[in-house]
Design a protein around this nucleic acid. Structure first.
Lengths: 144, 144, 144, 144
DNA sequence: TTTT
DNA sequence: TTTT
């Protein structure tokens, strides 16, 4: 059935990249999506949305996004539940990012640190081209 | 910032209509959105999404939707948190339904019970017209 | 870049299935999407959106949808242009349907004609299961 | 019925602001939305989408967006037709922008010309706050 | 009849 | 050149 989510927001912290037991990369990150309306006190609040990216997307997220990065996400809602340490069942809803758009201008991406350097011979290669455009990463590019 | 969710699913139970202390109607309901893909066991699972409707939408939801109804929702993601009875802070994400579409054929809606009768002289009137179409309710129609 | 369209509407005529020179199936169809608001004369109008489906989706559209069918579309906007017979350049925008949901109740689909019979040994098989649910067809199911 | 479009793209030229006979502001602009996939020649193409903004949105578009600006649009598809000078009927589909997000970093917006100065005492005021955030303008802010 |  |  139709299940579609589109968000633009900023990462509230650096993304977290892990691997499943079978070696599949998964990144999780939290997006602050500012509301367009203000509350009764006239303040603009935000919604804080947990997102998950898999495979190539996961690695690109980890490599190029960091706390404060502006990004667009096109994906779907997913719910799951698990048993907490104290035995309670915990219900979670998160956004599975099917396609991602980095909205930082190029300068903002390249002007900083070593951790942004592509690992020589590793990963899926550099997703950035010559243009000064925001970057798209789509599931269609997945090698599997 | 852009925050958009579109879902089609079925209510997993009857909606719950309440009123805020200032008399604003709020309906909550849970939508089962079937996945288009199957899991490793070849089963088709679903995501279970909590939704909230306000004002006129809230009353229409309560009046015309029930467990099993098929509906489309166009809205936005909202997060909030509250303190549970045991002192833990609970974080919740839900979909605020800005516009709703009832996707049951007319027969399915009218063939049953008393509770579907419009309250004489009450509410916002009957949202159903003459056509055999699914019904839309948009925030634009709100009387406030 | 993000490019997402979600529509629910009714086919204004039977879909048109053709094949590219390389044998790729393409269906085109037109969706009437009723507006939720009324015009100055108090009439409810509609938008008439041309849609295109490829491959397996194309064949499923042709087999199971017909004039009047209610369907949901999740896809993207695409523009193209071509030279008309009189030499003018014509600019077209249409929706590429990436995922489709048939919203007719099961009875409505099965109660009629020969053309709905699955061609024995042909096509991609019957997309309908046992449930009374609307049907999804996703590009993920494509055999290529 | 559900009718939702979300796009991120760049203006291919400066927006065009006009007024209806009753003084309602309307801006039209064209967005280049780059595709995430490449064609058979390995080139990345774009879709060129005509958009329309009304009222306050129209004036903000005209004041703050120009050729090359990156923007997000959340809106709906609308079709209309009119008679051309030569008597042919022309069918048009465009996106009505219900909510807009300016995605240029603040520096890019302020580093240039006089035409960006707010008209003293005129318009709807400056939509930019103190933050370094992209800007949202929603129909909810309309003064009518 | 196109943006970066 | 439109669906219910």
């Amino acid at each position: 059935m139709i299940n579609r989510v589109i968000l633009i927001g900023r990462l509230t912290k650096d993304p977290d990249l892990r691997y499943t037991p079978n070696g599949i990369p998964v990144s999780t990150f939290n997006l602050a999506v500012n509301r367009t309306y203000t509350n009764q006190q006239g303040e603009r609040e935000a919604d804080f949305v947990n997102c998950v990216a898999w495979n190539r997307q996961a690695e690109t997220v980890a490599k190029y996004l960091k706390k404060g990065s502006l990004a667009g996400v096109d994906g779907r809602l997913q719910t799951r539940n698990y048993e907490a340490q104290d035995g309670r069942r915990v219900y979670v809803m998160e956004v599975i990012a099917e396609s991602l758009q980095f909205l930082e201008p190029k300068g903002a991406r390249t002007k900083n640190s070593e951790k942004d350097e592509p690992i020589p011979g590793g990963g899926y290669g550099d997703p950035f081209g010559d243009s000064d455009d925001p970057i798209d990463v789509s599931d269609n590019d997945l090698p599997f």
